[in-house]
Write a protein that binds this DNA or RNA. Sequence first.
RNA 1: CGGGGGAUGGCUGAGUGGUCGAAAGCGGCGGUCUUGAAAACCGUUGAGGGUCACACCUCCCAGGGUUCGAAUCCCUGUCCCCCGGCCA
Length: 414
Amino acid sequence: MVDLRQVEKEFDTVSAALKRRGVEEGVLERIKTLFEEKKAVRARLEAAQAEQNAKSRLFGQYKREGKDVTQLQKEVAENKARIAALNEEVRVLEERLAELATTIPNIPDPDVPDGEDEEANVEIKRVLEPASFDFKPREHWELAERNGWIDFERGVKIAKSRFSALRYEGARLERALINYMLDFNRDRGFEEVYVPFMVNAESLFGTGQLPKFADDLFKIEGEELYMIPTAEVPVTNLFRDEILKKEELPQRLTAYTPCFRKEAGSAGRDTRGMIRQHQFDKVELVAITTPEESDRVFNEMVACASDLLTSLGLPHRHMLLCAGDMGFSAAKTVDLEVWLPGQGRYREISSISNTRDFQARRARIRYKEEKKNRLVHTLNGSSLAVGRTLIAIMENYQQADGSIVVPEILRPYL
RNA sequence: CGGGGGAUGGCUGAGUGGUCGAAAGCGGCGGUCUUGAAAACCGUUGAGGGUCACACCUCCCAGGGUUCGAAUCCCUGUCCCCCGGCCA
């Protein structure tokens, strides 16, 4: 959530920054007005409460002294009604404020480029040259069929469209990749954690998926639980409502989880193959840091994911996302796009974001600095989307006869 | 899923309807002593809002209710623990 006091005090700056993300101006105006109104009403409420407390104390004293309390009783009753009215007023204001404020995305960093969509993303650098093939490289679904690695039809049969099953070396390679990635991240100082694959609404609010993006989530019927759309949710929320010691920071964590997404609104996109599924594996990086350290840790995370791709021999490029293309909670995002020779283009395989204090404010994650509690910065990044890594390996390591050579570094994991 | 018991500050744990934001112990921090440390002793130590700073407001799981007044009484919910059932 954006800092309402910042909205109040630095209205023009915040408003300009959010406009870059496509937030309409009027919304921010209304937030500011509501916030100020709420403050004023609350001040009146508190004064009335102070009066009530004082009179109640006096009431007890009168009783003990055997004095007449009829007048006092009348005053107290009147004041009570006033308190109830003011309370209601505050409640309504807060509700309307929350309705608006919780749907405002994060303020983009100053170095985030302008732009509405992925067209305006800025390529920062390329790593590894795409190999040239002396035959026409095939797309992954064709390779999957030839090798029997991915069973699309049966995945659909047992679940529905956008589900698939892995078989033979495909299944084993998926698991090998997970293990390899976790080991790689651990060597880089990220502690491995294992977390629930379902979370409650409070957690989803904390990382920003709720209330705005409920339609993207699978909800468990009859339970207040949702399937996680990314490990970012359970892992970041490990620290929800906690005050960490400064020495405990930064927390650097890595976790493997499956991810579940409805992919609402992406009808017709990437329906072929395994690019966009309702369930996919991902190894995630999460960091909790002080504000001072978050840029440094962000760069470490980008490097970690990029080096992982390099170690697998997969050509890729770094993209700095423009303001309009970033996720709701992000202040800054770098995507890694892997080269898919079959498709002849780069496709997203990792996304690393610094949310600054946006999630920390929603999830109340703080740390103690010289007696004062300050909000932490939270960061998250994929390292990597496992299914897409599998695809990338298939397409980049394919042979003329349609077979696939497993990269050297993964063989010990098979 | 059935039966029983709980939920209080970083932890353990008292708590009478008013003087309780809350005893005590532990832990933390500061100090005395010491070359230094330990021990002992003294002091200090919850969070959020509000204020220039005070004042003041809110918070004893959550939400309702009773009352002039609720950590304390009543209802509902959530979570935890124990016993039994089922189960990887």
